[in-house]
Amino acid sequence: MAEVENAEALAPSIASHISRDGDGKPYLTGTKCSSCGHVFVGGREVCAKCYARSGLEPVRLAETGTIYTWSIIYRSFPGIETPFIDVIVDLEDGAHIKGILKGVEPDPEAQYFDMPVRVQYEEMVPPGADEEYLVYYFYPADQEA
């Protein structure tokens, strides 16, 4: 974010694995291990899978994938709007990431396994915060932004 000229005008990221490039365009940060090939969400210097201590390359994560597992959350902490669909997504580059599926009504009967999804970045004010943050959601891949 440091290289963005008008950084103060952009909403800060809500989590360290959401970043912006030089044009202020959001992306998901990841790390690829050049020894074993595993793709991690976020930055890291040692591979948790093969224990390599070098060759960990920063990458931009894929922004499409499929749902591996899910749950519909009806009860969360006070002030959090429910229900919402919590999904674990297998991204196309092999990374695995958690998020919320939007764009469809939560329905246990629907069984969301293997649904193709895409990442969409949005700016929103989290409950209890007083400014907008940069966040991401998943939407069905066939739904236009």
Partner: peptide
């Protein structure tokens, strides 16, 4: 400080 609960998913044990 700013929770990601209900935004990037849910961190509850039941989830």
């Amino acid at each position: 400080k700013v929770s990601t609960e209900g935004i990037l998913g849910s961190g509850t044990m039941p989830t």
